[in-house]
Simulated assay, not measured.
Amino acid sequence: MAHAHGEYYQPQPSYWPIIGSIGLFTGVAGFAAFLNGVDIGKYIMLAGIGILLFMMFGWFGAVIRESEAGLYNDQVDRSFRWGMIWFIVSEVFFFAAFFGALYYTRDLTLPWLLGEGAKGTAHTFLWPEFTEAWPTNGPQGVGGEFQSMAAWGVPALNTLILLTSGVTVTWAHWGLKQDNRQKLIIGLFLTVALGFTFIGLQAWEYSHAMSELNLTLGSGIYGSLFYMLTGFHGFHVTVGSIMLLVVLIRSMAGHFTPKRHFAFEAVAWYWHFVDVVWLGLFVFVYWL
């Protein structure tokens, strides 16, 4: 059993990390097999996701029970905060890699293919007929003709939704600090509703792009970058919405106090990070 010994906290032995590792390995292996045309790959991937969900439900439940039992001291609170900070830092670099790929492709590789700069010889010797500007699926026209997604439709609406959700989650935080349970619950409910609305609109956007614009993952480098950037962001919004829903349920159950509510703060930090990433996506993927 977990114990708090003065300044230090001694957690109980846990089997959840190994279960999480098995789920991650199974999910990634299944996804790789699916991308390579192995029929059973999608089922392996779904099994891995199921294992991860089981791990998250069990492990987070154990942490919540220990927290509500008063086992966590200030040292544990600092550990949680630093853990969340470094997790968000790792997410910053994760998205930075994809934004870097977008910059390299759009501002370096494309000019070379058009004959500019010291590496522009590819245009002369390989693809002299290539004259396209961004967005492009490359000199070979991989995936066929497509249309890019307009910025001032669903993407602009989703931008407004996420910015509004940043306001509502902050309003909920104020309610918690003021020990106003009603304001906390209403703010969280609005944030969760906005998050899932964003997800639904993005799903509709994907359906429209694939069926009517012929914009798919196979639409060359533009299609790949579009879906990798917006898809991973959508995954983060989904995870964030689920975490906010859990925090909402806990708030309705009477959890959290004005002075001790790190779980709420961690999710709020994550949500604001997701908001900032979307602003970058809207400007550099949709607008410019």
Rank of each mutant, 00 (worst) to 15 (best):
L184A: 01
D107H: 10
P128H: 02
W134D: 06
L163N: 12
M252L: 14
L114Q: 14
Q182L: 09
V192K: 01
K183W: 08
F94G: 06
G115A: 06
V283W: 12
M210W: 11
F87I: 07
Q178M: 09
S165E: 03
G48K: 00
L215D: 02
L35T: 13
F284P: 00
G70M: 04
M45F: 13
T164K: 01
H3I: 10
A203N: 09
G143S: 09
V239W: 03
L244Q: 04
I85N: 10
H173E: 13
Q75G: 15
T216M: 07
R106T: 00
Y72C: 05
W174V: 11
E116I: 07
A29P: 04
Y270P: 05
D39A: 14
D39P: 09
V274T: 12
N180T: 03
N214A: 14
W171G: 04
N73L: 04
L162R: 01
M55Q: 09
M84E: 14
F235G: 12
V285Y: 00
A150C: 04
I49H: 01
K119Y: 12
M45V: 02
G144M: 10
L213H: 11
Y104T: 06
T257H: 08
G120D: 08
S224M: 13
I199L: 14
R106Q: 11
W16K: 05
E66Q: 14
G187M: 01
W127Q: 05
A2G: 03
W271P: 00
P139A: 04
E205V: 01
G50Y: 04
F99C: 08
H233E: 02
F262C: 05
W171F: 15
L248S: 06
I40Y: 12
Y8R: 14
F235L: 15
F256S: 11
G187W: 00
G50S: 08
S251Y: 02
M45S: 06
F282C: 07
A193Q: 04
P128F: 06
G153S: 07
R81P: 00
W86D: 01
L162I: 15
M84K: 05
I88Q: 11
V76Q: 08
L46C: 05
E205L: 03
Y104Q: 09
A97M: 13
M55S: 11
M228C: 10
I185E: 12
V283I: 15
